[in-house]
Design a protein around this nucleic acid. Structure first.
Length: 774
DNA sequence: GAGCACTGC
């Protein structure tokens, strides 16, 4: 291998390590019997002078918080909850906003199961990291312990727990990862799944997993908590589990509908907002729109027309604030600013208008909102398994989402919600619930995780909403081509490794293959850069300057190597935030790429993947990186046809290079990272590849007999023919090719073997699919 | 010659 000093991409590399351990004596809650406590007993322990977990005297703050906790709606049902938990393995709990379920229920479980005595922890999952962190912080205060000791949290990049931890808040993805190495979750005596109504991919998988675990572990308790009244579905799914309903603590919200459908919801939203400002009493406004562009447009119009209103109608001043996730953090902070003061003392009050995407629906809470304007749309992810493309579509929201939006008006006092659609439309056109994510996603990564979790029969996988068989087939097909699954759909050694990486399977395959080409260091950086939101900024007012800045990083072989250049330059600069600003780069994305790279590096090291680089001056330095790309993304290749347009391989989709690509010269063969479906079909993040690599690296996929006719096929055929003629003279073949060859010949042999029914069915499905995609 | 709802490991 090369001298590391030759390679500018490695200048940043350094090791890091962390360690921490501590022990402490616990005093048992001597009068309590695990799994048989009463509310009165629990309260007596809480009321005593000393903390049973730490042995220390309770602080005065503890006592004042305790009084407030006793006042929460959920506390009135403490005994009822304990009765249900004692007599059932599964309990479903529906609690609206303000019920206190997220903070209190896990504590009741601690007092009931006494994890400090029994040696098994209690986990409470959250869909989002911030929630896991902030709730753990709050609960550690309520229990009068130091965060990270008895009460902690565990999220990606941060494990804030210790050997003393008895209650752990974590993201559902984190618990799922843990289950991959401990299939029975044997460290836990209870799992509490919070926000289950959101039906995120990870929650759905966890729920299914909990059913399997519960069958084999009669000692584990499972509480599923949700905020909606859609409880019957949850009860039924969990073997007719009992239900506990806890009222919330919010203010009433009056809902208004438009008498006629609105033709232009953007215009209607702006009009409504200004009308509220002119006629309604003090209180801030929250407007829900679908995306960045729409929001910026609305803010421009609002501020122009607002100014006019202020001049002509003597209204109060306006503070107009856009809100979407890619907005820089300092701009996001503006949502917490106070509404402006009247222009003159005693004049018309000022008002804040927040124009937001869905972030304000669940992730972010803005205090002081009294009026909500809901046009009834949001951008939603949809997955089309036929073309294997996930895309974002503006779609009508569900009734549940509409209720959630309306609820945002009643957090501090009674509010009003203006729906820009008719009541009839609300009742007849909107669906009850948003389709769960699992029905709208590519499942490649999920199927692999399930395999790792020990789920072998995916067809009969017990999900709350079973996914479409075609989506499963697509996932199995992808994993099979990547070499992650064998012909019996069992995990291969490579599959085990891929599943250890918390990224798309193609990306993981790319990293693993990079070892064959001596360039794991570089490919790790590229994989990290591909795992974060777009790093290139292009503000409307500085597009040319932004493009020039980007051109400085451009690599002639394509966008992947351009990303490598950016990452390297980022690591080499002294003032990263300023440097990013000067170069029109998203600092947040680069920082996050850096953490992800470190995580991937650790996983790679754990898998014994050598961390290596080629000699930087070698002519093969860059081609080898692109070979590794090909090893992961050989299924996402496009060929330039004579008409000057690209056709994707096998699917024969007409696509264009995305205008953001640095590739101006249209190479004949390209791999792409992403298929973007908007007004046109684009391929984004694209690099040139050699056709002979395709045949070498993925001969099982580039089996030309199964190819639909196209120009690209003819090129490959000629190439294959030539290879066959000169084949014997070519002594050196790379390792991965040999491996693939062997796999393929095994596959041929396998065809003659006796097969199980399921396997036959799988094969048949595959064949059918091939026909349909022709 | 264009877009990027939102999470998460």
């Amino acid at each position: 291998m090369a001298d590391i000093n030759d390679n500018p991409y490695l200048a940043h590399m350094h090791d890091s390590s962390s360690n921490g351990s501590s022990t402490g004596a616990n005093k048992a809650f001597s009068q309590l019997v695990p799994g048989q406590t009463t509310a009165a007993q629990q309260e007596a322990v809480e009321d005593s002078s000393h903390n049973g977990l730490t042995g220390a005297a309770y602080s005065s703050r503890y006592k004042s918080i305790l009084a407030k906790r006793r006042d929460l709606p959920v506390n009135k049902q403490r005994q009822g909850f304990l009765d249900l938990v004692h007599n059932n393995q599964f309990v479903v709990l529906v609690g609206e906003t303000g019920s206190g379920k997220t903070t209190q229920i896990p504590q009741y479980m601690v007092y009931d199961l006494l994890p400090q005595v029994e040696g098994k922890m209690i986990a409470c999952t959250q869909p989002r990291r911030v929630a896991a962190m902030s709730v753990a912080q709050r609960v550690s205060e309520e229990m009068d312990v130091k965060l990270g000791q008895e009460v902690g949290y565990s999220i990606r990049f941060e494990d804030c727990t210790s050997s003393k931890t008895v209650l752990k808040y974590c993201t559902d993805g984190m618990l799922l990862r843990e289950a991959m190495s401990d299939n029975m979750l044997s460290r836990y005596s209870a799992i509490i799944l919070d926000e289950a109504h959101e039906r995120t991919l990870n929650t759905d998988i966890l729920m299914s997993l909990m059913k399997t675990i519960a069958l084999k572990r009669k000692d584990i308790k499972i509480v599923v908590m949700s905020a909606t009244l859609d409880s019957e579905k949850f009860q039924k799914y969990f073997y007719d589990a009992p239900l506990l309903t806890v009222p919330g603590r919010t203010f009433p919200v009056e809902v208004y509908y438009t008498p006629e459908p609105e033709r232009d919801y953007l215009e209607a939203a702006i009009k409504t907002a200004l009308q509220i400002h002119a006629t309604e009493p003090e209180g801030d406004i929250l407007v829900f729109l679908t995306g960045e562009e729409e929001i910026e447009e609305a803010c421009r119009l609002l501020s122009a027309r607002g100014d006019e209103l202020i001049r002509r109608a003597n209204c109060g001043p306006l503070l107009i604030v856009p809100l979407y996730s890619t907005l820089p953090p300092n701009m996001q902070q503006r949502i917490f600013h106070k509404a402006p003061e009247p222009r003159t003392p005693g004049g018309a009050p000022g008002r804040k208008i927040v124009v937001s995407t869905n972030v304000a629906e669940t992730s972010l809470t803005i205090d002081g909102i009294v009026y909500v304007i809901d046009p009834g749309f949001s951008k939603q992810k949809v997955y089309n398994p036929r073309v294997r493309v996930e895309s974002l579509l503006v779609s009508p929201i569900s009734r549940a989402a509409a209720q959630q939006r309306a609820g945002r008006a009643g957090r501090t006092r009674p509010g009003k919600c203006f729906r820009l659609y008719t009541e009839k439309s609300y009742n007849n056109d909107l669906i009850e619930q948003t389709y769960p994510e699992i029905l709208r996603s590519n499942l490649g990564s999920i199927v692999l995780q399930l395999k790792k979790l020990g789920v072998n029969d995916l067809v009969h996988l017990d999900l709350m909403d079973p996914c479409a068989p075609e989506v499963l087939m697509r996932a199995l097909e992808l994993l099979h081509y990547l070499g992650a699954l064998d012909d019996d759909a069992n995990l291969t050694p490579i599959g085990h490794m891929i599943s250890d990486f918390p990224i798309d399977p193609q990306l993981a395959k790319m990293i693993i293959s990079a070892a064959d080409y001596g360039c794991t260091n570089e490919v790790l950086s590229i994989a990290a850069m591909l795992s974060v939101p777009n790093v290139f900024l292009r503000p409307r007012e500085a597009q040319r300057r932004a493009d020039q800045a980007k051109a400085e990083f451009a690599h002639m072989d394509g966008d992947h190597l351009t990303l490598l250049n950016v990452y390297h330059a980022y690591k080499g600069c002294t003032q990263p935030d300023k440097w990013c600003w000067d170069n029109y780069l998203q600092y947040r994305s680069l920082k996050s790429a850096d953490s992800i790279r470190e995580q991937l590096r650790r996983v790679a090291a754990k898998c014994d993947i050598p961390l290596v680089s080629n000699n930087f001056s070698s002519p093969d330095y860059y081609p080898n990186i692109r070979r590794a790309l090909t090893a992961g993304y050989f299924m996402q290749v496009a060929h330039l046809e004579r008409g000057g347009q690209y056709l994707t391989i096998k699917d024969n989709q007409l696509v264009l290079l995305h205008p953001s690509s640095v590739l101006e010269r249209k190479p004949e063969w390209v791999v792409y990272n992403e298929f973007v479906l908007t007004k046109r079909h684009y391929i984004r993040t694209v690099s040139e590849v050699r056709p002979e690599w395709l045949l070498e690296i993925a001969p099982h996929y580039y089996d030309l007999s199964s190819f639909p006719p196209c120009e690209g096929k003819r090129v490959l055929e000629k190439l294959a023919l030539r290879n066959a003629v000169v084949g014997d003279k070519k002594p050196k073949k790379d390792r991965s090719e040999k491996k693939e060859k062997k796999r393929k010949s095994d596959k041929e042999k396998d065809k003659d073997k006796d097969k199980s029914d399921r396997k036959k069915r799988d094969k048949k499905d595959k064949k059918d699919k091939k026909h349909s995609s022709d």
